[in-house]
């Protein structure tokens, strides 16, 4: 400790440079963590966080006995797995195709268009969903009625939402993720491809035996990053696509939307804190374990 202060004194200019960032991190990331103690308390608004009485693991018990806990866990994990597979697979395919395209203009235009959804807010994506699925004026129902069939109210069919959400997620992130994979593919030594061509390898063999193995580290790292968020839902996406539509909760409620609803209605904050703590701890454990295993198997692939 004494050495630490000596170091601060010696390097005070450098230390002073990081003070604003330290303060922001402490105030907006570390200090709020104290609120997680609510998970073990019976929250009373008049008493505040610290004076509310403890009630042990009652909140966790209630969260799971009421069935909410299991439903949220199931939904969150299923959505994450589905999104993980579809969005990464789509991005890898698109990246491989784009890097094989020879026509420069075509390549540039398509790449720019595919990257475009990354730049818009989820609010606008919500507007797109409305323009497509809206019961009265949506594009989909135009096509359905034009074909002489009955209008479909998508917002009343829970079963299709996992696929809709997964499609929008893959759509929004395809450009972003493929930028990463294209960079990885560009980094592959061109001489390997040339040598393979001379040996008579066709395009499929080049992709299967050179491109895919070469971008494997990138794929693993992208998967690891996502696995570390296994219990986190993209709140912005769920809220903009589904909104406060009670009919769809069974199929679309994830921990983050559950927490938000509890905030706006201010009911049962203790149980909500329990859900938050459960989410944070599971994510932390999962990323540590998965990263640890990865480091053992193939050190270069680990995140840290």
């Amino acid at each position: 400790m004494k050495e630490f202060f000596k170091e601060i004194k010696k390097n005070r200019a450098l230390f002073s440079m990081i003070v604003p960032a330290l303060l922001l991190t402490i105030i907006f990331s570390y200090a709020p963590m104290a609120g997680l103690v609510l998970a073990f308390k019976n929250y009373r608004f008049d008493l505040g966080i610290f004076k509310s009485p403890f009630n042990g693991v009652e909140n966790f018990r209630f969260l799971f006995v009421s069935g909410d806990g299991w439903r949220l866990t199931k939904n969150t994990i299923l959505y994450n797995l589905l999104n993980l597979v579809t969005s990464q697979a789509l991005a890898v395919v698109i990246a491989i195709f784009i890097s094989e395209i020879r026509c420069k203009v075509y390549k540039k235009i398509t790449q720019s268009l595919i990257f475009l959804p990354y730049f818009i807010s989820w609010v606008l994506v919500g507007a797109f969903a409305l323009a497509i699925f809206n019961y009265e004026t949506g594009l989909m129902n135009n096509l359905v009625t034009a074909a002489g069939k009955e209008r479909i109210n998508v917002y009343a069919i829970p079963g299709v939402w996992p696929w809709i959400i997964c499609a929008f997620n893959a759509w929004k992130w395809c450009g972003y993720n493929s930028v990463i994979y294209i960079a990885a593919i560009t980094g592959v030594d061109q001489e390997i491809y040339e040598a393979a061509s001379i040996d008579g390898a066709n395009i499929f063999q080049r992709i299967r035996l050179i491109t895919l193995p070469c971008i494997r580290p990138t794929i693993v790292i992208m998967l690891l990053l996502q696995v570390g968020r296994i219990l986190r839902g993209d709140f912005e996406m769920f809220y903009q696509l589904v909104g406060a539509n009670g009919q769809l909760y069974d199929a679309t409620d994830v921990i983050d939307t559950y927490v938000f609803r509890a905030l706006t209605t201010s009911t049962n904050l203790g149980m909500t804190a329990a859900a938050s703590l459960y989410q944070s701890v599971v994510c932390f454990v999962v990323i540590m374990v998965v990263n640890g295993i990865t480091r053992k198997v193939e050190e270069d692939y680990a995140l840290f």
Binding site: A21, L22, T25, F28, S29, Y30, A31, P32, M33, A34, G35, L36, L38, I49, G228, F235, D256, V259, F260, A262, L263, L269, T272, A273, S276, Q279, S280, C283, F284, I287, M288, F304
Partner: peptide, 19 residues
């Protein structure tokens, strides 16, 4: 110290109460 916040955080509820 900075990186840790990406591995573990209190989530929306804690930020909301604190802010």
């Amino acid at each position: 110290f900075f990186y840790f916040t990406t591995l573990f955080n209190g989530g929306m509820l804690c930020s909301y109460i604190f802010i």
